[in-house]
Amino acid sequence: MKIAITSTGNTLDSTLDQRFGRCAFFVIYDTESKATEFIPNPNLEAESGAGPASVQLIASRNVNKVVSGEFGMKIKPIFDSLKIQMIILKEPEKTIKEIIRILNH
């Protein structure tokens, strides 16, 4: 299963980005191979439509879950119809490493 996490930087010590559409990096974590992949967000500077464009990017990677600090009104229905689970974590100081550790429970 693949999980996308929004990140402020491209290391495992970066923290969770509280925005979804305009986060700095997406981390794609594979629970089976334990591999992480950092994707820079091309929509960071987008004036509008950053959210839906980011959803496209995430969906093209066959992700099952998305972890972020917030999901906008436009994005929620798209994820819903794609059957991707949204997880909202209101803890901006959590690092990617910690989140991955929680995910492995």
Partner: peptide, 18 residues
């Protein structure tokens, strides 16, 4: 459109049911 949302008491996250 919205789905059901849940709140976890262990990790304090919010998640939905896709």
């Amino acid at each position: 459109f919205d789905s059901d949302w849940y709140h976890c008491n262990t990790c304090h996250c919010y998640f939905n049911n896709p």
